[in-house]
């Protein structure tokens, strides 16, 4: 109530309270990031000391075929994965919003794969995707369809990973679900009185009201899908024919398999830049299209 509430405290008290975070921020984030800027300007074989080479690492990128391949793979993966999981999470959140026990059980079922450790999830999908005896091709075969060699075919492998990523949408679905609960019932009633169809209500009431949650999901989806690493590493090792070599995986291989810390750091900075540009782009687009409720 009063104007000077929680006025106790001073800079020193405040800093003392946040000191655990502040120390960790400097040691585990700021210092590594600063080191990474420096390393990106050096030739740094893992076992030697870094040697200053200026912008040579960045110049090398232009002629590095694997860099362009990894970049394209990652953008294609992110594009389809973000669009697919955004549409699917909205569809499922709307479908499972009803207050029945069955819907509650289904919500839990859809959320479960989000909790499964990524390695176990990859193992399960390795079997599902197996061309000879995996469930997907067995089921397709029972229907008379010859399924593709999913992960083993360079024109299907990346899309197989996209498909698998659509099973991990528990978080965006819950975020949309929470936003749906906040839509005032009176708006739906008014829309019904105006004779709107179910689709009209969704298009003109639900969608504008949940658009901030959607923007949030798209931005988080972009950040996450651009750094996809474990599935290609565990399931395909980047193959076949580099078809699933993602950007993060290329950074990992450059640093820890090829032992080129300097070049890996330059790659990492390109990734930061792309993430930042795409996330800010999504935010700006969101600003234009999102309906923000007057407080």
């Amino acid at each position: 109530m009063s104007a000077n509430r929680t006025s106790r405290g001073s800079l020193a008290t405040g800093l003392a309270w946040i000191s655990p975070w502040a120390v960790g921020f400097v040691v585990f984030l700021l210092a590594p990031i600063a080191m990474s800027v420096y390393y990106s300007l050096t030739d740094y074989a893992l076992l030697d000391s870094p040697v200053w080479i200026g912008g040579d690492n960045y110049a090398e990128l232009a002629g590095d075929g694997l860099f362009w391949r990894a970049l394209r793979n990652t953008l294609v993966f992110a594009f389809f994965s973000v669009i697919g999981s955004t549409l699917l999470s909205v569809g499922l959140a709307v479908l499972l919003e009803r207050p029945t026990r069955g819907a509650a059980v289904a919500r839990a079922a859809v959320f479960l794969p989000t909790l499964v450790p990524v390695v176990a999830n990859c193992v399960a999908w390795l079997w599902l995707f197996n061309p000879q005896y995996g469930l997907i091709n067995s089921a397709l075969g029972a229907g008379g369809v010859q399924g593709p060699n999913w992960l083993g075919d360079s024109s299907w492998a990346l899309m197989s990973l996209v498909l698998m990523s659509l099973w991990v949408i528990g978080s965006p679905m819950l975020v949309v679900g929470a936003a749906l609960k906040d839509v005032p019932a009176s708006l739906y009633e008014a829309a019904s009185l105006d004779g709107m169809t179910a689709w009209g209500r969704f298009r003109h009431v639900t969608l504008p009201m949940i658009s901030p949650a959607l923007t949030f999901n798209v931005i988080m989806g972009i950040i996450w899908s651009l750094q996809v690493l474990a599935p290609p590493m565990i399931m395909t090792r980047g193959g076949p024919d580099n078809a699933t070599l993602t950007f993060s995986m290329y950074i990992y291989k450059t640093a820890f398999e090829f032992g080129r810390m300097g070049y890996a750091s330059a790659l990492a900075w390109v990734q930061i830049l792309i993430t930042l540009v795409l996330a800010c782009g999504a935010l700006a687009l969101g600003r234009r299209m999102v309906y923000y409720r007057a407080a």
Binding site: F25, V27, F28, L29, A31, P32, I33, M35, S36, Y39, I223, L226, Q227, L229, F247, S248, I251, Y252, A255, F256, M261, A264, S265, A268, W269, Q271, I272, T275, L276, A279
Partner: peptide, 16 residues
């Protein structure tokens, strides 16, 4: 700091 990709921290954290 939520926006920092893990891949950026990979090499420097390993070295740290």
């Amino acid at each position: 700091t939520l926006m920092i990709p893990q891949a950026v921290l990979m090499s420097p954290q390993f070295l740290l």
